[in-house]
Design a protein around this nucleic acid. Structure first.
Lengths: 339, 339
DNA sequence: ATATTTAATGCAAACGATTGCATGACACAC
DNA sequence: GTGTGTCATGCAATCGTTTGCATTAAATAT
């Protein structure tokens, strides 16, 4: 059996409560006894039992990380693992753990979450995505659970802790970058508008147009639905028109790669015939040919900030809900060219 | 405060121990009282407290999932998330949870693991990779901890639970596929040999050569080191030779995509000038152009089997260590062509 | 009718921490 | 010397289960 608080207490010649208080660095223990206790802990290699400690103090020190259900978003993007890295690196230091919540369906995920809450396994969550009309998000709201969202809150923004990229700005900057290269016919490819990161990027794209007095052609925008297995025919049609866009802002690298491929099928070369700028700066962006100019959203930092916030809120209840914006930066590669 | 076992006991008119035994379906409780207790549990919506239950029964019902530290393997391959999905889907049903262990360095990861073991947070692990000379693996062995490995055990194979693809066979079949298409000069691209999945696939590639009496040209094999950011110059040199391979077996899609790109840079087209077959059947394989013929290794099932084994062993100690082989299958796309 | 077995349940002590309250020692003031 | 206050520590209850053992009631054997 492992070393318990009693063993330490016995060795240090104090009571278990003193040991416990020493761990918590309680000021009512004198510095000298603390030293004695710490020495005892060190020689025995004591670490407090996680379960017992949590039971007694009625918390869980465990954060549930909720992954989106949709296949595309989980698997397409390495940034989930990057965010998790960021989250874990902060949690590791602060003695919190994370537990991953996934499911094949929203129902399954929701059931797991419910059970975790009921059994006291987890009392806070990080939602690794943001999506409108999401039953999981609704559940977290309705139960008044503590959670942080990575992405933009679409309701109760004031009561929600969230960590996000300034996607509107990012979309605007991406478009501006193309504009500065001389492009005037710029298209946009994104996901359905319930995915706020995508609709925000599109909004930024539109803002850039307004700013420069460029006309917005509705048929330059392509929306990819979750169910689509490949690029829709409208895209090929668009690429074959004489007044086709000379550049595209694309909402993630995954779609960027897909666009490159569609170009090839339509006989267009990137970047000679078409410039592409995308988001996330994942390995996709580096590996494809030509490699994509992409906006890096600092996924690890997004994760780390979310963890920071959630832990901060756990340890200081009644704190106001914070909103954090993590900076992004453009990583120039070979998919864009002056017109 | 949540509903406790006492509340249920009170409502059902029995003692807490009876409720506990009912949950465990202990045969010494009569069927009728069980029914009564179950009814009480249902009306109150009772679920046993995770921490208390674990504390009393001295286990953790938590499996630590250890990700490799190397960036390339984590981020390059969607199959980690797929394996995790598979693991979780089994755990969800069996009331186990998983906790993700990552670190920027092996030291960090190891420290987290150590602490989890000491604090009783976790008592079993799934190693999501297999690698020679890995300090984490060594630690698990030396401490005699219960763990399952996804990938091939490189030592103490008899005492290790592992779940793997038959990579030798897969490598052989991939090579055979190219052979049947008429290719005779076949190259191989893989990782350093400490990564057993890669060296096994290479071994299979060699076996296929022996089988057909084909000569093995050592310089047809390229080894990609973890530190390499891009394909090495030897590869371009090889591709420019008149006696260059007409086909390649490539150890994962990530390298497959990289090879496609190198080809393009060398003025070769796939599959006209060069056929490629790779492994993992990740999104990379589908998205690149041309899409890659790839061997699907059923990542989700690998994960699910690992979870099954580990839980089985937790609930039945002293079970012999099992070795599970998950089948693979070739997914034909457009990167191979008869010579 | 009594003794003995069997089945079903409850009691109470763990599990290993945390924490409100009591206690004791000591210092200082009067 | 007594009273009051402060500081440091310990006692013991608690968190919500699990589980060995005792207990009771019923069933069977003699």
């Amino acid at each position: 059996m492992a070393i318990t608080i009693r063993d330490v207490a016995a060795l240090a010649g104090v009571s278990p409560s003193t040991v416990s208080r020493t761990c918590k660095n309680n000021p009512s223990i004198s510095e000298e006894t603390k030293e004695r206790v710490r020495a005892a802990m060190a020689t025995l290699g004591y670490e407090p039992n996680f379960q017992a400690s949590n039971l007694a103090s009625q918390n869980s020190r465990t954060i549930g990380l909720i992954l989106p259900v949709s296949e595309r978003f989980i698997y397409a993007n390495s940034f989930f693992l990057e965010m998790i890295q960021g989250i874990n690196s902060y949690c590791n230091v602060h003695q919190y753990t994370t537990t991953l919540i996934t499911g094949q369906t929203e129902e399954e995920a929701l059931q797991v979450i419910r059970s975790m809450v009921r059994t006291g396994q987890t009392d806070s969550f990080i939602l690794l995505y943001s999506k409108q009309k999401d039953p999981i998000t609704d559940y977290l709201y309705n139960e008044g659970l503590l959670f942080a969202m990575i992405g933009k809150a679409y309701q109760f923004a004031n009561q929600t802790i969230y960590v996000d990229t300034d996607n509107i700005l990012a979309g605007q900057e991406a478009t501006e970058y193309l504009y500065q290269l001389g492009h005037r016919r710029i298209g946009y490819i994104g996901y359905e508008k319930t995915l706020l990161f995508s609709s925000d990027r599109k909004y930024g794209y539109q803002l850039a147009h307004f700013e420069h007095g460029l006309p917005l052609q509705e048929d330059y925008s392509i929306e990819i639905k979750d169910s689509m297995k490949k690029m829709p025919p409208e895209l090929s049609d668009l690429l074959k028109r004489p007044d086709r866009p000379t550049a595209f802002v694309v909402t993630d690298d995954f779609l960027g790669v897909a666009l490159e491929r569609t170009c090839r099928e339509c006989g267009l070369t990137v970047p000679e015939d078409l410039s592409i700028i995308s988001f996330n700066n994942s390995l996709f962006a580096q590996m494809t040919s030509p490699p994509l100019t992409s906006i890096d959203i600092n996924s690890m930092q997004l994760g780390a900030e979310a963890a920071t916030q959630i832990i901060h809120h756990m340890e200081n209840p009644n704190l106001a809900s914070t909103k954090i914006i993590v900076p992004h930066e453009i990583v120039v590669r070979e998919s864009c060219r002056p017109i």
